[in-house]
Design a protein around this nucleic acid. Structure first.
Length: 237
DNA sequence: AACGAGTTCAACCGCACGGAT
DNA sequence: TATCCGTGCGGTTGAACTCGT
């Protein structure tokens, strides 16, 4: 049983924010800071719940928000980070200045997931010639040369491979075994392979990819190879 | 031009966590 | 220690928009 919805009170508005409401919220926070979100709506004169105000501010009104489409570099980073962190959108967002967890979550669910899965699907149907496939590790290297991310795993244990940029990287096809989910007999091997892939990918990635966050003890984002096989981030220190 | 299908994304909901008491 | 309360997070929804016919 959860807590009662914070917006149950009568008279509280829900739904899309109006420009006027935005102005009120921005003005108030600029002058007073947000302080307690719960009391903010009353103090600012908004007929919204604190939660709604916080969401509007953090996802849309904050001055440091970078709006507009994600750059290929940002997308690449999201894919990398998702392979490590899974659906921890806030943690991923913290590595992309100006981007919000909501934005990244939407990006993943609408663009990247489809793109990666369709690319996986395409690879599956391109034939099962394992011998013709590059190893995941070499793929990571070649993909890096091509400026794309190609292989990683999700917290679901589904190996995600093949970015849109891989299409242009000749010879960067993944083996089918690395693509199919873990339901068949090769699942454990696939998982291990993809785990190794993700690790290798991180190690191999070009220098302009700042992965220093992996060393942030205070944030528990300490890189630990175990997380790749456990598919979760449980090695916090 | 009209309509339906598909896609995007802002916003909501419920839960978990951590600090205060 | 137990409980309460505020906040943050991730999953989901649905209105608005885009595209194809």
């Amino acid at each position: 049983m959860g807590r009662k919805p914070c917006c149950d009170k009568k008279g509280l508005k829900k739904g899309p924010w109006t420009p006027e409401e935005d102005d009120i919220l921005i003005d108030y926070i600029k002058k007073n800071g947000h302080g307690s979100w719960r009391s903010l709506p009353n103090l600012a004169g908004l007929l919204r719940c604190g939660k709604s105000c916080r969401l509007r501010w953090t996802n849309y009104l904050r001055p440091d928000i970078k709006r507009g489409p994600f750059s290929p570099e940002e997308e690449k980073l999201v894919i990398q980070l998702h392979g490590i962190l899974g659906n921890r959108w806030a943690a991923i967002a913290s590595q992309l200045p100006g981007r919000t967890d909501n934005e990244i979550k939407n990006l993943w669910n609408t663009h990247l997931k489809k793109r990666l899965l369709s690319e996986s699907f395409r690879n599956i149907h391109k034939g099962n010639k394992k011998s013709a496939c590059q190893s995941p590790v070499s793929l990571a290297s070649s993909s890096a040369k091509c400026g794309s991310v190609s292989g990683t795993t999700t917290e679901m244990g589904v190996p995600l491979i093949g970015s849109y940029e891989d299409i242009e990287c000749k010879g960067s096809k993944l083996c089918t075994d690395d693509v199919i989910d873990g339901s068949d007999s090769s699942s454990s091997n696939s998982l291990e392979d993809s785990s190794d892939t993700a690790l290798q990918l991180l190690l191999d990635f070009p220098g302009n990819n700042d992965m220093s966050f992996l060393e942030h003890d205070d944030d528990n984002y300490v890189f630990c190879p175990a997380i790749l096989s456990e598919n979760s981030l449980n090695c916090s220190l």
